[in-house]
């Protein structure tokens, strides 16, 4: 679930308040805060939209994980999902363009066929 709004990074653009489907965030003064953590559904959408990589959603869906901001920055996890989708500035392509699902379907068919032959 959502664990962090980096107060150093947040620019108060309200985008997380706007896009969170379960209305987890609120504004406190000029910055966004986690107002209803228990409503978080761990869908990672807020991270995808945050323009300054200020948010971190821990993969644990049911209990709080209390990660350390400095560690998240050092391990490259802060902002990693936006980068994965290709919505970060300077991204060469988006996840949609890179999508290998169709190729992978064909590959998998061939691959599974091969495995079956080996099985014989």
């Amino acid at each position: 679930m959502i664990e962090l709004v980096s107060q150093d990074r947040c620019i108060g653009c309200r985008l997380c308040v706007k896009v969170c489907p379960t209305n987890v965030f609120a504004m406190e003064g000029k910055l966004a805060v986690i107002a209803r953590q228990e409503d978080c559904q761990t869908c990672f959408m807020c991270e995808a939209y945050c323009p300054v990589d200020a948010l971190y959603v821990a993969p644990q869906a049911d209990k709080s994980a209390n990660p350390d901001e400095q560690e998240l920055i050092e391990s490259g996890r802060l902002g990693s999902w936006r980068k994965e989708i290709g919505w970060n500035p300077g991204a060469e392509d988006t996840m949609a363009e890179r999508d290998t699902t169709p190729f992978f379907e064909v590959f998998t068919e061939a691959y599974r066929g091969k495995q079956q032959e080996i099985g014989k």
Binding site: A48, M95, A96, D99, P102
Partner: peptide, 11 residues
């Protein structure tokens, strides 16, 4: 183009 899949955030 391959049109057999969609990525949710983009879509």
């Amino acid at each position: 183009p391959y049109r057999r899949g969609l990525q949710g955030p983009e879509y």
